[in-house]
Amino acid sequence: MNQIELTEDSRGHPLARVQFAKAQAYAVLYLSDYERVQALTGNASWFLNSSGNGHRYVRVWHAPTARNVMVSRLILGVEQGAIRHQDGDPLNLRRNNLVRPRRGAV
Rank of each mutant, 00 (worst) to 15 (best):
F47D: 07
S72F: 02
P64V: 15
S45F: 05
V18T: 06
P64A: 14
L74C: 04
T65L: 13
R102G: 14
M70F: 06
N49G: 09
S45I: 00
H55I: 10
V78L: 00
L48D: 07
T7I: 09
S10D: 10
R84W: 13
M1K: 13
Y34I: 09
G77N: 03
N92W: 02
Y57L: 03
L15Q: 12
A39I: 15
R67T: 08
G52H: 13
W46S: 00
E5T: 02
Q3N: 13
R11K: 08
R67A: 13
H55A: 13
V71E: 05
N97S: 09
N92F: 01
T7F: 08
A66H: 08
V106G: 11
V37T: 03
Q19P: 01
G88T: 13
H85I: 12
N2K: 15
K22V: 12
N92H: 03
I4S: 12
G77H: 01
V69E: 02
H55Y: 12
N96S: 04
R100Q: 07
N92G: 02
R73S: 01
F20D: 02
L93W: 05
E8P: 06
R11P: 00
L98H: 03
V18G: 03
M1A: 11
N49A: 08
N68G: 15
S32K: 07
A23C: 12
H55V: 11
D89S: 04
R100I: 14
S32D: 07
R17P: 01
Q3A: 10
L48N: 01
G77V: 02
G12T: 08
V69P: 02
A27H: 14
A27M: 15
N92S: 04
S51I: 01
T65A: 14
P64H: 14
L31V: 03
